[in-house]
Design a protein around this nucleic acid. Structure first.
Lengths: 243, 243, 243, 243
DNA sequence: GATGAATGAGCCTTCATTCAT
DNA sequence: GATGAATGAAGGCTCATTCAT
């Protein structure tokens, strides 16, 4: 592996370890020792690859946002059309296993909370919000056929709804099924378009396309054993603090 | 003033100073020194009134939640009826100056982020969520007239929408008017009930009752000067870090 | 003891411990742990009384300079006259046990070396130099009776000579007697005034008044045992590193 | 170039970079990174050519001393005679551009300060002092014609005077002209020999021979461009820290 | 030979907490 | 009750040194 690749790889490993620790312990309790130990490296290494812990954290947020954007970008790339099926794809992406995991939502919430008082994080989040709202606006404009302002309002509401559902899921991941969340977002759009809301046994259900999409687990390419893998946290570990 | 009252008063002052500091600096940067100085007291006092900083923080969250619940409880108390006007009152409460201020939302976000990994905070927030969702469910059940599950779903969505809008407001308080947020929540209900969504010049507008209610500034009882008031932060101060 | 006094006292103790450590280990090797341990206190205390290690060091230099100035001020205060006896008193002061000790000269040299690249220290030393050169100039003007510029030149030379002799003494304190140094400075003045240089058995000797003055050990008031005295370093300890 | 030469050359470059950094930043702030970067080499290289940073520093001091001795040796080599003209040559050497530069004096002071507590450096400096004092003694013995002890005393004083003047120059290089320093040292000798001290407009002036000698800029053999020369510091750069 | 990634001891500093006054 | 001096664990960070490439 070339030198440049090693550098990028180490940074990625450290960022992954940081996200892992934030998911498990939160931003406040996460120390440089946790991160470096989690990545199976020495303590000094963080300041070798990052100017400071703060900069590592900012890059971690950037990674999170990049992953998010890649995910919804990929989802809409699969749909040629600018209409309801694009909206369905976007919703499915927001509630698939990758974007709507306890781990990820924990970290996102931690950063939202941090962003409230720290502008560097805030700016990153604002930029990401602007992007997704633009995309949602465009898709809703095609679907609803009304004015741009109408579509903008709808996009704001849909985006807010998604984030609010994420927050619900984060605060109580055991009781809420991702499928249900997706169905609720879909029913919101149904109501916007005047379509009948699908209800089965008193529960809203998502559209078949969404149900299918959110179920697909993204196959994560297995880490090669050789690469001194940071010890893999069991998903349930995330709730160790919560007893 | 009796002993017990003095004690409660000091605790309340410290909690207020803690909330002030969290709004301004965030949870991570808030230290005991900030809090005690902000309350005009000595450093050692916190461990005199609270078992630890952690316990102070938990009580601070409790205070925040109590205020929230008092606010919506008061709002619905004014409405005898269990229907649309109750929903309007609830929405107005959620977006009035008190509950929807940059200061308050900053603190709430910080606690949401912290709760992601800290069960004590999480449990407090879950309990509060359960309460408000019950109230919303009941009001929606009367308004919509459908099944309980339908009302529950609607309540979940409405609650998520409100929180999502709060998050938007927190991340970008200058660009978003509270009135607009209230209008968006109201239009969501309009759609549920099949009522026409009110649009003026391409913008959703809230119902007159809501507009009136959210405008009322809650008269905050002036702190007596005698009480060594912590220096009052200008609301704009909250964003000093963000430039 | 009053609170304010405790504060000043602790600062003085920490400064003394810092000077002790610098004399023994030098500026580079002196750590906050050395200083606080040397003062018999906890590590955290330094940042309680000083903004930083750097500020402690600056105050330590200030203390050193204050002591120096107090010493020569006291010496000339004892001499009513502005002439040769004042010069004798000044020379005696510069080579008495207090100002011309291995400990003190080690620390001074360390600060001179540091001042070469650090302006804060440099400014302190420059100000002190200006003061003593003014005093020397005045005394030499009266003694020599020439122009002010002549006196200034002589003062510069005398001051340089004193510091050069100090440097000699610092680099080799065992081989050089303080009395001899004083005699050499005195002979410099003798030559300026045209007086015969006193030589006994091929060595320059100082004037009787100087010999007497430099011999007087300043009785240091014993530290009260009660006061948790930092462990007293034996004078020979200073050269532990030098083997 | 042979292997041994390459090795010596690299060492010399590293030493030069170390001296540069010490002049600019002082001994305390100079790190291995500063030195290797200053020499245009990689970080790891220092421990390849030197056993440790400490050893590099000792060799740097040795270089400094060697240059010093070469300079005064060359000066007296040009004078056949063992008398006043030899003394003049020695004084001129001590205050010429090379030995009496801010850069060099900063470094010397740093090492004096360090030597106060570190015997390895101390021993180097003591040995150098012994050499120059022997030479000064011999020249003064011939000039004064008195006893050896008289000459020794005079040598000690002259040496101390020179170092004291250097210290003055270091602490305040802008206000002091090298020519003036040389003149002051010369006048010291004039007084020893009973010669009239030369004064022009109330200022001491050096002997013509000295004035001439200290003015000669030693032509520094230009570093070949090819050799990745460490960026040359402007002489004024040295005082960047001091504002 | 030379590089720069990696290590880890140790530095300065912060801060929740304790406790004598 | 209240203060603020004092503690010491732990944090982020620096840096001399090592070593695989």
């Amino acid at each position: 592996m070339s030198r440049a690749n090693v550098k990028d790889k180490r940074k990625a490993q450290l960022i992954a370890a940081a996200l892992e620790s934030i998911a498990k312990r939160g931003l406040m309790e996460t120390t440089i020792t946790h991160i470096s130990k989690g990545a199976g490296m020495s303590r000094g290494i963080i300041n070798f690859y990052f100017a400071s812990k703060e900069m590592l954290l900012r890059e971690a947020l950037k990674t999170l946002i990049d992953e998010y954007e890649a995910e919804w970008a990929e989802a809409i790339a699969k749909t040629g059309d600018e209409g309801r099926s694009k909206l369905d794809a976007l919703i499915a992406a927001h509630f698939n296993k990758k974007l709507c995991s306890a781990r990820r939502l924990n970290v996102m919430s931690a950063f939202w909370g941090h962003a409230a008082s720290q502008s560097a994080y805030r700016n990153q989040l604002e930029a990401a919000d602007a992007k997704i709202e633009t995309v949602l606006t465009s898709a809703l404009a095609h679907t609803l056929g009304g004015s741009l302002d109408e579509a903008k309002n709808a996009a704001t509401q849909l985006h807010a709804l998604i984030r609010g559902l994420w927050l619900n899921f984060m605060l109580n991941p055991r009781d809420v099924a991702r499928e249900m969340l997706a169905a609720q977002a879909a029913s919101f759009i149904d109501r916007l378009t005047g379509a009948p809301v699908r209800i089965v046994r008193d529960h809203i259900i998502a559209r078949p396309a969404i149900e299918r999409a959110i179920g697909e687990a993204k196959a994560k390419p297995a880490r090669k054993a050789k690469e001194a893998a940071p010890k893999q946290l069991d998903i349930e570990d995330l709730f160790g603090n919560r007893a």
